[in-house]
Design a protein around this nucleic acid. Structure first.
Lengths: 218, 218
DNA sequence: GATTTGGTCGGGCAAATTTCCCGACCTGCA
DNA sequence: TGCAGGTCGGGAAATTTGCCCGACCAAATC
């Protein structure tokens, strides 16, 4: 890729699976005359493609898309370009999700309940290479940090942890179901839930998580 | 479970998915008047159940059953009873399979090409707590041991190793396909092949294998 | 009490994946 | 020249996943 003539202003890629929301925010953002929305995407894969072809200054992304693939998209983009600036624009603000987003490589986190001005300010911050988050997110995180929370596992219930442990140990779902006297279906459901809650996409990632959290060894 | 009056002779559980083969060998074994075939099973799950309820002295098992679940069955049984004696009775005698069987906890390995006498002798050895293998198996293993083979990965081709590495790293099949310029289908096929060749049943087990072999870390 | 909240357990069902098997194409080697 | 083996992918049936929903139960809150 050759060097590109740098157009002043901030180029933005909008990622959200809800077209209406996307359009609405596109309007808001384009009111700022140093903002240019250069592309949109409605899922993780398209987001990655769009990022590659447009190299936007900032990616504004909703991470609650089908497939829980938002975190994944962040990881993908950052894997390709460690300098990518990604601002998560989410419905929710659970501490776990915020942490997951930042550890996936996001530079900022703003909830959809925030004032447009907050989003705009956050975009500018992120574009400058800073980190940013809306007030409500900051509050939640601050609160969380007072209560010593140790890991991504805090968001998991007891049963979920047990199942994750066994999964990581290499047991099949049938074995786990037998061990815990559950139906295979229930184990499948837990497996799904665990992936959703932790934002992990593959079983291999789950194993790594379990090992990092001391749930498993090797 | 209460202690059982020990009936002299060797009680045997036969596991093979092919009924005809099972019947045939049942005949052969019952010709020995100190052998009693106390149960049969046609798959891994039934083998485990039968083992639990009959506690046979020796399990004679074909490991090439649908689901590649033979090794798995061995692990299950040994997990429940570390003293279980399992004699693998296989069609093939690739060194890799033999090693996999022993490391899963088998006590012996006889090929289906062996003379009945060899099988019978092996059963007696195994029942005594010794290890046993038919001559052809011993030859293959001996040969193998001359060529310094280091790990379960030797049975994998270059491509398979690369794909295993990426799988263990946590990449999705789509990502791997993209990275290597393959179709997703091909990656799926490799994934399947890798599991079949290594005898691993879950992705978590694959990750452990990869880590043990230095293909991945964490 | 009554009710909300949250963890546990599983059914349902479309969509995706897995599991095998097969054929095609290369490359090296006998 | 032919055969063995690695690479790549299609096909089809069986199974699993992804996501949603309802039921039960226990503790917390009103």
């Amino acid at each position: 890729m050759t060097t590109m003539p740098k157009i002043p202003g901030i180029s933005i890629l909008l990622v959200d699976d809800h077209p209406v929301v996307r359009q609405g925010y596109r309007r808001v953002l384009e009111h700022q005359d140093d903002f240019r929305v250069v592309a949109e995407a409605d899922n993780a894969a398209n987001a990655y493609r769009a990022f590659k072809s447009h190299q936007p200054d900032v990616v504004v992304m909703d991470i609650s898309m089908p497939g829980a693939s938002g975190l994944e998209a962040i990881r993908n983009i950052r894997a390709r370009d460690a300098d990518a600036r990604i601002l998560v624009f989410s419905m929710h603000s659970e501490a776990a999700q915020v942490k997951a987003a930042f550890s996936a490589g996001a530079s900022g986190f703003v909830t959809k309940g925030s004032e447009p001005a907050e989003l705009i300010a956050a975009i500018r911050s992120v574009a400058r290479g800073e980190h940013a988050m809306s007030d409500d997110v900051a509050r939640v995180l601050a609160l969380e940090s007072l209560v010593p929370t140790q890991s991504a596992l805090d968001q998991l219930g007891e049963r979920e942890i047990e199942i994750l442990r066994q999964l990581a140990a290499g047991h099949t779902k049938e074995q786990i179901a037998a061990n815990l006297n559950l139906s295979t279906k229930t184990v499948q459901n837990y497996h799904y839930l665990i992936k959703a809650k932790t934002g992990m996409r593959t079983d291999a990632q789950l194993v790594r998580l379990a090992v990092e959290c001391g749930l498993a060894n090797l």
